[in-house]
């Protein structure tokens, strides 16, 4: 057992998978430069020395290197690609959506694309173009699996599961959760460290995780919002409201079994999402709840999400943009009184 943050846990996951399977390699920008950062958030730091020729630095060409990852995966390798900021996925989208996600279907099942695409997301003082919550753009793409990791334990286990999966898997990571120490630490970082077992393990890519049990209201969130939901639950507990907190974690597919079981207990749900409310993953989850477990609801579904605006820069507006603990507490409090 050792205590690790998400960046270290991801690094160990990559190291172990590359040692286990010679088909695994990393491709991205600034990931293996001697004297460099090991990617934008230090995840691949030191790996180029350990695995010569398998940490591939690319030009600044997200569309190109994503297509290269797809092609290499088709030919039997298992690439782990990453973009420095999730926002850059728009550049890579043609290869992800038109090729990676569809080649299996188009070929009548002949092709496998076992690739991983990692992407940091979240509003962190960088203005509008290094801040978006990108997961919403990929959850509705058949042929892709989409997960979001909020703890170091999950980061390691889900990355390992993704590398071993025969499908394209997108892993969203939050910039405020990588770790609060080190050269690339972010102001406002939240503790997402975990006790990491010494032995090999994977975390399934299709299961939500109950982070806190409760009987009055269910709060659903992922990434930073899973942490804020837990903090909100602590405050609610002081008022006698027992909130069940679920880290949705698997965004495509969504685990309605775990969510439904919770709703049958609480009858009430708040879905918290960083990102504009319109067209968000929370909208899909709300619809899915209606289709899967509407009978359990004793009150309408409530969403706490960002305003329908680009992510602003100035801290006062950014804080207003991002759902925070008081807003989650207030939403849950009102819902319980409903």
């Amino acid at each position: 057992m050792k205590r690790q943050g998400i960046a270290e846990a991801l690094r160990d996951a990559i190291t172990e998978e590359m040692a286990r399977d010679t088909r695994v390699f990393c491709i991205g920008e600034d990931i293996g430069v001697p004297g460099g950062w090991g990617g934008a958030f230090t995840v691949t730091l030191g790996l180029a020395e350990k695995f010569p020729g398998r940490i591939i630095d690319t030009p600044i060409a997200e569309l190109g290197f994503t297509g290269i990852a797809v092609g290499a995966a088709m030919m039997g390798l298992r690439p782990i690609a990453d973009v420095q900021y999730g926002d850059f996925l728009f550049l890579a989208s043609d290869q992800l959506i038109n090729n990676a996600a569809k080649l299996r279907y188009m070929s009548g099942g002949a092709i496998k694309v076992p690739m991983v695409m990692r992407a940091p997301v979240g509003a962190t003082g960088r203005g509008s173009q290094h801040a978006q919550s990108m997961e919403r753009y990929f959850t509705g793409v058949p042929g892709l699996k989409v997960v979001a990791v909020s703890t170091a334990f999950d980061a390691k286990g889900m990355l390992k599961a993704a590398v071993r999966d025969d499908n394209p898997v997108m892993i969203f990571e939050h910039k405020l959760l990588y770790g609060s120490k080190g050269a690339r630490a972010e102001p406002g970082a939240v503790d997402a460290t975990s006790e990491i077992p010494d032995e090999d393990y994977v975390v399934p890519l299709d299961r939500a995780a109950v982070r806190r049990e409760g009987r009055h209201v269910t709060i659903l969130g992922w990434l930073l919002m899973a942490h804020f939901a837990r903090q909100a639950a602590e405050i609610l507990a002081q008022e006698g409201i027992e909130a069940e907190v679920i880290d949705v974690r698997s965004l495509s597919p969504i685990d309605y079994e775990t969510i439904g079981a919770s709703l049958r207990k609480t009858g009430r749900v708040v879905i918290v999402e960083e990102g504009p409310k319109t067209g968000g993953v929370s909208a899909e989850i709300a619809a899915g709840i209606m289709e899967n477990c509407a009978d359990a609801l004793m009150a309408p579904v409530v969403r706490v999400a960002s305003a329908d605006v680009p992510v602003p820069f100035t801290p006062v507006l950014e804080n207003a943009y991002r759902p925070d603990v008081p807003r989650i507490v207030e939403a849950a409090r009102q819902l319980v009184q409903h």
Binding site: F65, T66, I68, A69, V70, G71, M74, M75, L77, Q95
Partner: peptide, 11 residues
């Protein structure tokens, strides 16, 4: 085009 380059990278 990038796809072909990726296949060639695997080779």
């Amino acid at each position: 085009i990038p796809l072909a380059a990726g296949m060639a990278l695997a080779f």
